[in-house]
């Protein structure tokens, strides 16, 4: 692909298109508050790098880059972010005095040193990997991998197994109490007067069927429990604009609403399945039920 010291025009084109994208994606690490956004940007960077790898004459690694980094590693990151809390945004208020300036200055210093080393070096004529790959990059890599680097490969395999076991052990949690069986759960629910059936799916009878839109029962009452508890805890329940207008405006005119009702619905903080009780499930909307279905006694 490239036999000369200089890049070909196509490669230059590729480099100058992809390079800035890569740097831009990477810089999200420094400037993005939201971790998910950062992860996505880094994914872009990884894919961009995969392009460059292909351009550098190793299509095999380019594919591996996509599969391993973008497909596995970055997905793992996103999973963990979800686990930890996707909305956990990083505060940019520095707690260690001078740390940010030190980081920036040292980063600049590192850049100067590294690029100084690059600029001060003279590079030989780029041979290109065509001859070495012999038209079959993956085959060439495989040949080397299973001959000269066979032992390294074995050891790396060991490492992977150990790492997997380590992850299992690290995340393993010893159960401290006996798990509650299904029968016991039903007993508890009966005794406490809780709902016995599973909650309806979110968005049932509502205008939208997204996961954050609560279901509405046959009498037009909102069933808060239908929204997954994780969303409720985070206050991400939809603001119920999917409800029929009359239901909202007639029954609960803004002027007559108690102060707590609207914010409760907006924020979605009100209501939990434990204390909701049968009141949520049935009963026509009473004329005097001015507080709306979400207001708790």
């Amino acid at each position: 692909m490239n036999n000369g010291l200089m890049m070909t025009t196509a490669e230059q084109f590729l480099f100058w298109i992809i390079g800035p994208i890569i740097v831009l994606g990477a810089s999200a690490l420094l400037f993005s508050k939201r971790a998910v956004l950062t992860a996505c940007s880094v994914m872009v960077t990884m894919v961009g790098l995969a392009f460059l790898y292909v351009g550098l004459g190793s299509p095999f690694l380019g594919i591996v880059q996509v599969v391993v980094y973008t497909g596995a590693i970055m997905m793992l990151f996103v999973f963990v972010l979800m686990l930890v809390g996707v909305d956990v945004s990083d505060s940019f208020i520095e707690t260690i005095r001078g740390q940010r300036w030190a980081g920036v200055l040292l980063g600049l210093g590192l850049l100067v040193v590294l690029s100084g080393a690059v600029f001060r070096s003279t590079f030989t004529f780029a041979i290109g990997t065509d001859a070495a790959s012999n038209g079959n990059n993956a085959g060439a890599v495989a040949h080397l991998l299973f001959s000269d680097f066979a032992f390294t490969l074995e050891i790396t395999g060991c490492l992977l197994i150990i790492a997997a076991m380590g992850a299992v052990i690290l995340t393993h949690r010893v159960r401290l109490t006996r798990p509650i069986t299904q029968g016991e759960m039903m007993e508890i629910r009966t005794k406490r007067g809780m709902r016995l059936t599973p909650p309806p799916a979110p968005g049932n009878y509502a205008r939208h069927n997204a996961a954050d839109v609560p279901a509405i029962d046959a009498r037009g009452k909102i069933i808060e429990d239908s929204v997954p508890s994780a969303l409720r805890m985070r206050g991400q329940v939809h603001n119920l604009r999917g409800l029929p207008q009359d239901l909202l405006e007639d029954k609960v005119p803004p002027t007559r609403r108690p102060d707590a009702a609207a914010p409760a619905i907006e924020a979605g903080t009100a209501g939990s399945s434990d204390s909701a009780g049968p009141r949520d499930t049935g009963g026509p909307p009473e004329p005097g039920d001015t507080a709306g279905p979400e207001v708790k006694p």
């Binding site: 004459g57 190793s58 780029a126 290109g128 990997t129 065509d130 001859a131 890599v141 080397l144």
Partner: peptide, 8 residues
């Protein structure tokens, strides 16, 4: 690797 024409 490309510069040296080497798969290593």
């Amino acid at each position: 690797a490309r510069m040296w024409g080497n798969v290593d």
